[in-house]
Each structure stands twice: as C-alpha cells, then as structure tokens.
Design a protein around this nucleic acid. Structure first.
Lengths: 302, 302
DNA sequence: ACATTTCTCTGACTATAGTCAGAGAAATGG
DNA sequence: CCATTTCTCTGACTATAGTCAGAGAAATGT
C-alpha cells in the first residue's frame, strides 16, 4: 500500500507538477504567476494573500511591487481599515490571468488528448476519487477548547442547522446542557476537525465517572460531507473514551438527522429505550466499547 | 472533464508535492537529495545522472562536489571509458539515502493514516488507476525513420518475440517483406511509440496506391502493455491512412498472437479469406475506413 | 489619551537553482 | 596520427525564493 502511494507521488509530481510549472511560468516567475492567480478578478486584501500563499510579508510586498511595475496590479488602501491594502488586477493583469487560465486548460488537455474516450472517462473518475480522499486525509482532528473560535463557529453552525431541520426548531436552552465546562477535561472533551485552517466539524464527550459517557455535538460542515468525516470523528471519540477507561457510550438524536442515525447504526450502536428526557430526541443509542490493544504502526480504523 | 483534471492537478501538487518536498529536503537542498537518490546503491555514471535528472553538466558537477565534501559520495573514473566518471555512495551516503527512503515512507503513511481501511483501499486503487493512465498519456507516438535506433530496437524485439511465440519460430527473410524503403514515405509509414525516451512500441503501413493498404509491425513492448497502446497505435495508423486517401486496411496475423487478434476484432476488423501467402499467418483481417471529418478540439478517439 | 497591536513596507541579507563559456583529458573516425 | 568529438570540470555569472529586523501608519483595548 505504502509502495503504491509512493509510486503515485513520484509519477504525479513528475508528470503533473513539471507540466504545470512549465506552462504556468512561461516568461513570468512562478511566484508572480501564483500571486497573480490568487488575487483573482475581484481583488483581494494583501493580508489574505499572505495567509493563503503562506508568504513572508516582506517577500509578498516585493512581489506585489514587481507586478505593479509591470502594470498588472494596482494596490490601494482599504476603506474599512486604513492599515489593510487591497490588490486589484488592472485590465492588463486580467488579460495575463486569463492567459494563465488558458494555459492551465492546455495542460489538462495535453493529459487527456492522447487517451481514448474510455480512458479519459476512467482517468477523470479516478482523479475525482483520489482528490476526494486526499482532501479527506488532509482534514485534521484535534482536541480543542470549547471557547476557541473554531469551536464557537462549529456550535453556531450546528445549532443553526438543527433549528432549520427539526420540525419544532431548536433552542439550545431547552436541550440537555453541554456547556463549555462540561466539554473540557476532565469533565468532557471536544474534538474539532479543520480543513485548510477552517473548522469542518466537531464531536464531543461528556464523562460520567463509571457510568456511560455521552456523545454530544456531532456535526460535519456541509462543505466537508462525503469525506467520511463523521465516521472519523466518531472513531476518534471512541478511542478517547477507551483511553479514559469508558466502557459504554450513549447518545440521543432527532429523527430528522437521517445520515447521523445511519452512521451510528453502521458504527455498531444499537437503539435502546430512552435513557434521558431530551425533548428534541426520538432515538437513543448505546455501544459497548472494546478496550482494545493500544496503538500500532498504522492505527487500525474500522 | 478539463475542469476535473485541473482541480486534480491543483489538489495533488499542493498536498503531495508540498509534503514530498518538505520531507525530502530536511536539512539538505532538494537538488542534492534528488541526486543522492538517483545515484542509487550501485552507483551510476555521471552522464547517466545528467540525462536522467536533465541537469547542466556544470551544475551537476558542483552538486557532486558538495556531496563529496559532505562525505556522502565518491566519484571515480570508469574503467571502460577514461572520460566517464562514476558516482558511488559511501557508507554515510547509503545511510543518508536510507533516511530519505524512510521519509518517503513517512509521507505515504501520513496520507493513509487518517483514513479508514475502506478509504485506504479505495485511495490506493484510484491512485494505481491514475498512475497507469498518466503513464499511458505520457507515451508519445510519432512517425519515425525505420533506420532510427528506436525503430531498430523495436524491430529486433518484435522479431525476437515472434520467434519465441510462433510454434515454428520466425525468420524475417521467409515472411512477406517490409523493408526500410517500404515503410518510408511515400511507399509506407512507420509510427514509433516512446515512453521516457525509450521505444515502447511500433506499427507500420505499406501503401499500394488505390488497392488496400497493409498494416505491419504492430508491436508493444512488454513494459508498456495494459496501457491501451496497441489500440492507440492502430487508431493513429488508421488516421494516417485516411489522411492519405486509403479506404481499406488489411493485415494478417499468427494464431499465437491472441491479444492482437482481440484488438483487431474490437477495432472493427473482420476476418476475411487469405489475401496473400504469408507463411506465418493464420488469420487475415480487413477494415473499411470511415473517411472522417478531420480534426477538432479534442480529437475523437474511439 | 496612550500603550499595544496589526498591517505593510523597505533595506540588507542568504541560499538554491541554474546558465554559459571554455579548458583539459580521453576516446574515436578516417 | 591527427582532427574531432565526448565527457567532466572550473570560473564567472544571473535569477528566483526566501529570511529577518525594523520603521511608520492605522486601529484597538483600557
């Protein structure tokens, strides 16, 4: 498996990487080309460019200066914040960017062109699959303080989604509590998933000593669905629970959340009688955890 | 389609490319690391390194010097040719290379690790498919003089394969002729496929004025099989024939060449009565060509 | 209102990658 | 055997990418 991944890495960086660079950098240094592209047709704040391209501020400033000297870009002060500067493409800059766009199309065409219709279809399908799974593998899941902006953003999006999807709407105050303190060790635990620095999902545990622990706040951002992230959060929560000696996990959920219910069933949770009086719940689930042998080389994920 | 390819290119060069470079270049410049890797455990001639990595001779020399100064490489004169120098890894060089190897494994592991077993399997399968088809799209098919070393190499390998596979062996002199002149315009035509500069297959036409043209010398190197190259050569030969006003193509083949027979049938050739007395043939095929509309954006390939 | 922080810019560096011309030694073709 | 070619090396360059410290202007917290 590892061999195939390495072989793929080699093949792809040689063929795609080299081709890309060769085309995109015609005449213009790669750094400038990337920047030109990233500014986009609508213009973009310099600080956003800096974080997106992960460049030193001095270096970025110089790159902008050189694009400005070539008449491709105009940098002006932002109205909202006098410190912030916004880079905009000039007419020539837009033309240059369109040229880059055309070249990217050319690269793609040059890859497809030698293939038969069948091969093209298969290649495109396999590329979509690789891309999807690479994105999935880029998602990072880490323990997070409930007060962290990422956690806040997740909770807010989660509540808002529930209030749209539940027949009766959703008011967190009426639901069983899962306050910041309850989701902070040692009382509980919050896992937040991030993708490219943006929050993409969450899941939490509430411990109750020797009694079963509870799963709370399971949510995946719409943009990150279809990546198996829900399953991954659940697996990681279970691993955390096992590491803390928990032997039984419980959760309740609303009938409107079909995907979640499917996930819990597929992950080995069985439906049990109501074990609390959560007003928004229609289903209660429980799973007995396998104490497990501890970590190995590649961690076993179901 | 083109959009998916571009999206893939972006995703993969970011994720895989960046990760690769970050790991491989720890402490050592990328150029040196690549060179160290390419020298290999058995050592390699400097001129081979130059062509493989496509480096300027002065630059390569300097890179070797720096690796030599670090005690990783020893460069010595070749016995066979006093001008040629051979680079060999020292014990420390081999250790360093093993470290690079380990890091490559780490990159691969870090991609697989966050995924579930199912996802890993699917990713690896999709990677294999993308890799295979990218290789297929890297193959170049060009008209070639029959005297060119690539053509010579193909013919030799082709004859040698026939003599192994035919029950009665194979002697080109007894077979119907297809000499250099007969495969050179305007009498005929030879297409040779190359992959990374190595010959990977061939196919030829013999024209006979208004009479049907003949297909000859269809061969794909063992290393390049499974890439759809046979089909591609056949399609390109047909396109060349159409461009020269040919309306019927003919060919004969031996019963030992099962894949070829399958290819001809799948490509629309129908078996006909023997139209010549080729002693090695068991099957004769013929196809009426569609005059076709000429070139478009992405050429239509069947 | 004042200290602190944020944002961008400039100056002064360094490292890596790469190019080009030419020299010297060895092999090769006629 | 002599001219030519092949192979490698050195010296002298250039370009790209990037780092780091600090300065000045604007916003923000208290």
């Amino acid at each position: 498996m590892i061999g195939q991944v390495r072989s793929f890495n080699r093949a792809v960086t040689q063929r795609v990487g080299a081709l890309n660079d060769a085309f995109l950098s015609r005449g213009r240094p790669l750094g400038q080309a990337r920047l030109l592209w990233e500014i986009g047709p609508a213009g973009r704040d310099v600080r956003l460019l800096r974080s997106r391209l992960d460049l030193d501020s001095g270096y970025l400033s110089r790159l902008l200066r050189s694009l400005e000297n070539d008449g491709l870009v105009a940098v002006e002060q932002s109205q909202a914040d006098g410190r912030v500067r916004t880079a905009r493409l000039t007419a020539r800059g837009r033309a240059e960017r369109a040229e880059l766009d055309r070249r990217s199309d050319e690269v793609a065409t040059s890859i497809l062109e030698p293939l038969s219709a069948r091969q093209r279809t298969r290649l495109v399908a396999a590329m979509a699959e690789v891309e999807r799974l690479l994105v999935a593998s880029t998602v990072q899941v880490t323990a997070c303080d409930p007060q962290h902006p990422h956690a806040r953003a997740c909770f807010q999006a989660y509540f808002s989604e529930l209030s749209h999807r539940f027949d009766a709407g959703f008011d967190p105050a009426r639901s069983i509590s899962a306050g910041d303190g309850e989701l902070t060790p040692p009382a509980g635990l919050l896992l937040v998933a991030t993708l490219h620095g943006e929050p993409a999902g969450c899941g939490a545990l509430k411990f109750h000593g020797d009694a079963p622990a509870e799963i709370k706040r399971m949510w995946v951002a719409p943009a990150a669905r279809g990546l198996g992230l829900g399953r991954r959060l659940l697996t990681d929560l279970e691993a955390q629970a096992v590491a803390r000696g928990v032997s039984i996990l419980r959760l309740e959920t609303n009938r409107a959340l079909g995907e979640a219910i499917g996930l819990y069933r597929a992950a080995g949770y069985r439906e049990v009688a109501a074990f609390n009086d959560e007003p928004y719940a229609h289903h209660w689930f429980e799973k007995t955890l396998d104490p497990g042998p501890g970590p190995a080389g590649l961690p076993a994920r179901p």
